[in-house]
Every structure is written in structure tokens, then in C-alpha cells.
Design a protein around this nucleic acid. Sequence first.
RNA 1: GGUCGGUUAACCGAGUGGCUAGGUAGCGGUCUGCAAAACCGUUUACGGCGGUUCGAAUCCGCCACCGACCUCCA
Length: 490
Amino acid sequence: MQNNLFIYNSLSKKKELFIPLHEPFVGLYVCGPTVYSNAHLGHARPAILFDLLDRYLLHLGYKVRYVRNITDVGHLEDENAGEGEDRITKKARQEKLEPMEVVQKYLNTYHKNLEQLNTLPPSIEPRASGHIIEQQELIKEILDKGFAYVVNGSVYFDVLKYNGKYNYGKLSGRILEDLQSNTRVLDGQDEKRNSFDFALWKKAAPEHIMKWPSPWSIGFPGWHLECSAMSTKYLGEEFDIHGGGMDLMFPHHECEIAQSTAAHGKESVRYWIHNNMITINGQKMARSLGNFITLDQLFSGDHPMLLQPYSPMTIRFFILQAHYRSTVDFSNEALQAAEKGLQKLMKAVSTLNKLKAADSSAFDTEKLKEKCYEALNDDLNSPVLLSHLFEAVKFINSVSDGNEKIDEAGLKAIKELFNTFIFGILGLKDETKGKEDEHLTGELINIIVDLRQDAKNRKEWDVSDKIRQTLKELGIVIKDRKDGADWERE
RNA sequence: GGUCGGUUAACCGAGUGGCUAGGUAGCGGUCUGCAAAACCGUUUACGGCGGUUCGAAUCCGCCACCGACCUCCA
């Protein structure tokens, strides 16, 4: 199997040719959300980027195992000793729910939203709470190798010792001395040998709800452990691609690298891919900043900053129109432009299906196809891919207007091309189709009911009865009222 | 303060040392009974100052501004 896909590896900071470890299999691990509130626009970005990657790899013929975790154990709200309460527990207390009810509630909307965005589901969606044993096993391994220490029932990763043998900070470009001098001094860290050490296992306070027994204490796993444990379980000690948002690079992914390397004695991830942030008024959109717009709000238009609702495909197109390593700034103007652009593309698809073949063609579909692959192979450059597709749109419209010609073969090729790239790889779909048909049907029935009323007015009862009967057979019931007639579906 | 990244026309957003990205909006035209759509043409660009080069928005340096990470975060 051959490909020419170059992806930007955050670890080497270079575009590298993608070569999977065990062809034709590809292992892809992506950090999913912590489910304690509704998914917002920012969550859509990695979902769509890695869906694009998943779809493209599948298209190239790889067998992809796509693992995307759900963090349902929660992270500490603040690190001050004793006051730390994890976000899920906090939400559970606020909403008077079981922690797992909180998790389920927001996991359900997350799934619904991602389906609306037309992302393919991952192959495995493991949850942190379901892998406590695996996480404990990993802690034991790290302890055995001497890269962790136990204090008062908690286990901490010994960064300094790790850094003596390996290189802590290689992904995010941190230097340990800098970290030492720059890290804020926080209270309650006296258990740690160094401020940059991080917890693998935390002893739980008595009032803590989510806790499990372990050799060290009744407690809960550390913040970064789940990804190391679950990626190893489902993809192996070494696997191809690990993805996530740029904001996770440090400390989350850095700690993951340290944990896995400490336990297995080797690097686990071959290609790190990080998507950039979505900003709003130039600032990162984040739950903790309170400046987010949820996907449900975008789809319904129910948010003070939204001038109108935006459909899931508009959001998808909007995100695909920017390269994943750039920030994208939210604005109504930009989303409206995306909406129009998507409409233009979809309209061209239906125009294409109506085109008549001529005996000659002035369009080089082979060349276009090449350029499309080139764009994707160049670090998944979806905006450039779209710009190439719009060249074809222009040509299709010209043919439709009679200014250009396309032959049978060209027509077939361009249909295939559109099908592959627009629907198959970019994962777009025509949202107007169903709605239009629905609407059209309604209007057609209105006309028929109107004509029946005319017949009734002329006392042409056989005609009006025939219409009523025929419609009934189709499941449309006419209800005569004093001033005209209504209809409804059975 | 440390590390990293960004600054492209009205808006969004690509980009290679020399060749019109693309989308949206605007303007003019073609088509059309009217309108819409479509098509053709078209106006505002590469933060500032230097340097390298025959030539730089693209490479280098300095400056300005913005942002991300350094705490949970997609």
C-alpha cells in the first residue's frame, strides 16, 4: 500500500511522510472531552479534523482503529489541598445528580452533536472510569521502574528522575529548569518532591464521591493517566497517531509521553497531531473562560451573539475552510459566508447531475483529481482542496449555461470526484434535500386541496370526493371546515 | 517573566522566492417578460523598518501589536 500523505508532527515540528507501523492497520488515538457540560464549537474542531483524517485514511485503504476516550472521572477544579473538587462531582452536586448521570447526560448530547456534524463514530470509545484497573497496573509498572514515589496514599511521577534518563518537555519545548522557576507556587503541594511532579494516584478525601480502592489508598487516578493506559490497551505500547487540541500539549500530552516512556522504556506515539483553537473576539473559546457557544445553540440560533441559526454542515464547512493548525475566529459574518459557500457547492452537485454530455470536453478532470489529492496529502489542507473543488463548480455552472462542454467520460469522472471528496472525505452532506422534498410535498398538497375546494364550490362532488379518497390512500387526510379545508398526515 | 505561534485586501481564509488560491460581500456587464440563479469583468493586500537577492508577502534581523501554553481545557 502506498500513500503520499505528509502530516505535521508536533514532536518534530516538521511535515513527515506518514508510514504506519503495521500496514494496513493504523492506530489513531484522540483525546475526547471531559463530559461535564454541553459540547461547544471548540469541541467540533478536533472531532471534524480527526474525522477527516479517519475518512481519508479509510479512503486510502487503511484499516483504521480510531480510539477516542471520554474523560468521566473529572479533574480537580483547583489544586489547593482539600478544596479540590472535580468538575464532574461539582456539577453533580449543583444539578443534584449522580456523577455518572452527569456524565451520561452530556455524553448523550456530545454523541448527538457529533452525529449531526456527520462524523463517523470511533471504533472504540473507552471511558476512564472503566479502566481503573489498567491505570493501576500502569502505576505499578512506573513504580517498579522507579519513576514514581508514594506519599500518604498518593503516587506521584518523579519528573526529575525521569528527565535524568529521558527528556521531559520534548513535545512542548519546555526546559525543566524553566519550569522550576516559572511554575506558580501552590499550596498543598508539600507531598510532591518538586512542583512539576504530577499525580498518578490521588488519595480521596472522605467526602469525595468518585473513588476506588487501590494498593495505595482509596482514591482516584491522576489526570493524565487514562490516555496512557487506554491507548496502550487498545493500540499497543507503540502506535501511529495521537491527536488532540493544542491546549493539551502541555502538560497533558507531555505527561502522557513521560508515563508511557517510563513504563515501557520507549516512545509510544509516532505522530502527534494537534489542532489549533477556535477563538471568539480573538480569544480562545473555552468553558473555563465562559465565552463559549454550544453546538446546540449554534444549530438553534439561541444565543445572544448569534444573528441566526447555523446548520451542522455550515459549521463543518466553516471549520474545513480553515487549515487545522490555524486559529479560526468565530463571527456571524464568517459563518454566513460559509453557509453561502456550502450552498453554492451543493447546488453545483445537483446541477452536475442534470448536465448533458457533449462530444468534447474542455476540462481536465485528471488534473483536478491530482490537485485534490495533493491538497490532502499536504497536511490535510482542506481549504486548498475546497478551492480546487470550486474551480470545478465554476466549470459545471458554465456547462449548465452552455458556455462550456463536457463529454460522457468527463461527466462520469467529475461525478466520481465530487462523490469521493465532498461526501466521502470531507464528510459534507446536502441538508436541503430532505427539507426541500418535505416542503415541496406540502406545497403540492396545498395546491391539490385548493383545486378540490374549487371543485366543491362548483358542486363537482365526484371530483372532490375522488381527490379526498385518493389522498386518503396516500395517508393524507382532508378535514373540511367551515372556511375551507385542512389536511394532515395520518 | 519563560516557551511557542500569528499579523494577507470590506469579511473569512490559502500560499510558492518571480506564475490570478478560494469563499462571502461590493461595483459594472451578459442572460432573462420581471426577479432570482448562473456566467464574464472589476476595486481596496500582504503590520513597520532594515538586510540577503536580478527579484520577497514568501528567507534573515530588529521593532510593534495580538494570541496560545506555563492551572482544568478540544
